[in-house]
């Protein structure tokens, strides 16, 4: 099946400033794809190119097999979009706002619109300017979801939502996936990513560094291994093993950082009288933090 989103060599420069460089990825139909990265990494730039609000310096983006620039209107007919930063009409009420956008999108099921408002617990009779930040986000979410688009492009969608709102939002994402719809979302809420996304792309300093299933990311992470022996063991014996990077040793204990397969460490440890073996798998949060920090450190080194 053709991918819903496909980018090739997507590059954007803002004058002399870096936007994104050679970003390439695909999102399959029915997939929930998480787009992660630190602030200023290029997430919003990528999304805005997909939506044709900014134009790529080089490369192409295709959505539903159509060119994101020349066929943008045809693409938008099937897209629900929530920008990261937005504003709507201050003088309109929430209902007038969603009604107006239902006219612009077309094909809105009023019952579904009302259901969304009820589930997100937002009073649509109030004026937009009187809403709290979270309620403004809910109104914008309704405008993005109400026409049941084939593709949802959401930039920081749960920003400002209370925990109940976040729960409802995750449920709506699950339902979209069950309906076979595709979701592309950028987020900083890792729990949200873990619970909702099939795959994740990590962008840093404008370059897409990793695209992998959420579960696989953990496998790519370092494991913290602690070995306790009956007698003294030298660190040198383990330092040369493949995948072992950091070793600290006390008399009878070794602390290792291991990447990849554990087999060489287990075999080396088995040559001694091993009392205890502990391997701790990092959380998704730790993985991302380590990933981001590694990038920052590399940038500092280059600087």
């Amino acid at each position: 099946m053709a991918p819903v989103i496909q980018t090739l060599g997507l590059t954007k420069h803002y004058g002399g400033h870096r936007g994104i460089e050679q970003v390439e990825f695909e999102v399959a139909a029915g997939e929930v794809f998480g787009f992660l990265g630190p602030n200023g990494a290029g997430k919003t730039t990528t999304i805005r190119i997909l939506l044709d609000t900014v134009r790529a310096t080089a490369g192409t983006a295709r959505i539903f097999g159509l060119d994101s620039r020349s066929d943008s209107v045809a693409i938008h007919r099937r897209v629900g979009y929530l920008p990261g930063e937005f504003s709507l009409y201050d003088r309109l009420t929430g209902r007038e706002t969603v009604d107006y956008f239902s006219k612009l999108h077309g094909g809105v099921d009023r019952a579904y619109q009302a259901q969304l408002a009820e589930r997100l617990d937002v009073d649509l009779s109030r004026r937009y300017r009187d809403y709290s930040r979270g309620n403004k986000q809910k109104v914008a979410l309704i405008t993005a979801l109400q026409h049941r688009p084939d593709l949802l492009v959401l930039d920081e969608p749960s920003s400002g939502l209370d925990p109940l709102g976040q729960q409802t939002f995750l449920a709506l994402l699950r339902e979209a996936r069950e309906d076979g719809r595709t979701v592309f979302l950028s987020s900083h809420v890792l729990d949200e990513v873990r619970r909702s996304c099939d795959r994740v792309g990590i962008i840093r300093e404008g370059r897409l560094e990793t695209v992998a299933p959420v579960d696989q990311l953990r496998d790519m992470a370092h494991h913290e291994v602690e070995l306790r022996f009956a007698g003294a063991v030298t660190a040198a014996e383990f330092e040369s093993l493949p995948g072992v990077s950091i070793v600290t040793a006390t008399d009878h204990e070794l602390h290792l950082t291991v990447t990849g397969e554990m087999d060489p460490v287990v075999r080396a440890a088995a040559r001694h009288h091993l009392i205890d073996f502990t391997s701790r798998e990092p959380s998704l949060e730790e993985f991302f933090l380590a990933h981001y920090r590694a990038g920052t450190a590399a940038a500092d080194d280059r600087g």
Binding site: R77, P83, E85, L88, L104, H105
Partner: peptide
């Protein structure tokens, strides 16, 4: 200027 155009252009509006 206020970012409303991003939402508008996300619809069928060219």
């Amino acid at each position: 200027a206020n970012g409303r155009l991003d939402v508008l252009l996300g619809t069928r509006l060219s």
